[in-house]
């Protein structure tokens, strides 16, 4: 027996590519959920490595809350042009206009939870049987227990107590009609792994990941980007701060962190030292100790 000397990023990359190819081999109509965040951007790079010089055997799907950072959307469109793959967009605004969901009111209103409905509608409209997502197990304790192939019933629900055992690297993608599988190829990556990989692969990211000056307000102890999408009133004091975003989601639920990190190396050393975990900057997880578990049961990403 010889020594296996694959570096950890090579190991993680090879595992993710293996999972993407299993999706291609096992499903009729897969899709890759693309949010414009660094994790789904990493997935796109992994898909290039898995399938080039062929085309991706799936389209990219973006669930658009309408409350986007402009930088995310322009990044998305430029990327699609570059890779020459198909993009499908599901609009939360359409779900609102169609009366399927009701816009939240009040100061903490966000479309974050509404997008679950748009996601499920988009899945059923196109008949997707597998949706690839960029969730990682180190993000949150409910995610730490989720399988790489995670079956959702016809209501999009995750049942943590009825998960299929997942053995070796053999993934069971068999489902009944109407069900779908959420697939998480970077389950075993940490936040730092993703950044180190982005650096190694020289992947371009939306500029909001890097430190920049921005108008901010404070909400529930967190720095938020001032925007028309936040229900602001006279109590909200707008101030200018040098910030960056550690995760990129809807503008109403993604908090900024104060930062001077303008280079990838700065970010990597910032994260290595950081004492706030990544989802600590997500308002949506602060609702209760089981917030993520509850949303996943309801069909969330």
């Amino acid at each position: 027996m010889n020594k296996n000397n694959l570096d950890y990023l090579d190991q993680l990359e090879a595992e993710a590519i293996h999972i993407l190819r299993e999706v291609a081999g096992q499903f009729e109509k897969p899709a890759l959920l693309f949010s414009g965040g660094k994790d789904s951007i990493t997935l796109v790079r992994l898909a290039e490595k898995a399938f080039r010089p062929g085309k991706f055997p799936f389209p990219l799907v973006h669930i658009d809350t309408g409350h986007n950072f402009d930088e995310t959307i322009s990044y998305r469109d430029e990327m699609i042009d570059r890779i020459g793959e198909k993009l499908i967009v599901g609009y939360v605004q359409e779900s609102i206009d169609g009366g399927k969901v009701i816009e939240q009111k009040g100061k903490n209103a966000s479309r974050n939870t509404l997008q679950t409905v748009t996601l499920l509608d988009t899945i059923s409209k196109y008949g997707f049987d597998a949706c690839i997502g960029g969730a990682r197990r180190d993000e949150e304790k409910a995610r730490a227990k989720e399988r790489i192939f995670s079956v959702r019933d016809e209501f999009g629900q995750w049942d943590p107590k009825r998960q299929r055992p997942e053995l070796w690297n053999i993934y069971n993608g068999k489902i009944h009609k109407g069900e779908n599988v959420r697939v998480f190829p970077i389950s075993n990556w940490t936040e730092l792994d993703v950044w180190n990989y982005i650096k190694r692969e020289n992947i371009t990211l939306p500029s909001i990941y890097f430190a920049h000056e921005r108008d901010c307000i404070t909400r529930n102890g967190q720095l938020m980007a001032a925007s028309p999408f936040l229900n602001m009133d006279e109590e909200d004091v707008v101030f200018r701060k040098k910030v960056r975003f550690r995760t990129v989601g809807d503008m109403t639920c993604t908090a900024a962190v104060e930062s001077d990190a303008v280079l990838l190396d700065d970010i990597i050393s910032e994260i290595s030292l950081s004492k706030i975990s990544e989802r600590g900057a997500r308002m949506d997880d602060k609702v209760s100790e089981a917030a993520m578990e509850d949303r996943k049961k309801g069909g969330y990403f």
């Binding site: 304790k141 730490a144 227990k145 943590p160 107590k161 100790e289 089981a290 578990e293």
Partner: peptide
């Protein structure tokens, strides 16, 4: 990780 595990103080699934 899971609510039932916290309630019962046991590990049910692989984390």
């Amino acid at each position: 990780g899971l609510r039932a595990e916290r309630e019962q103080g046991i590990t049910i699934d692989v984390a």
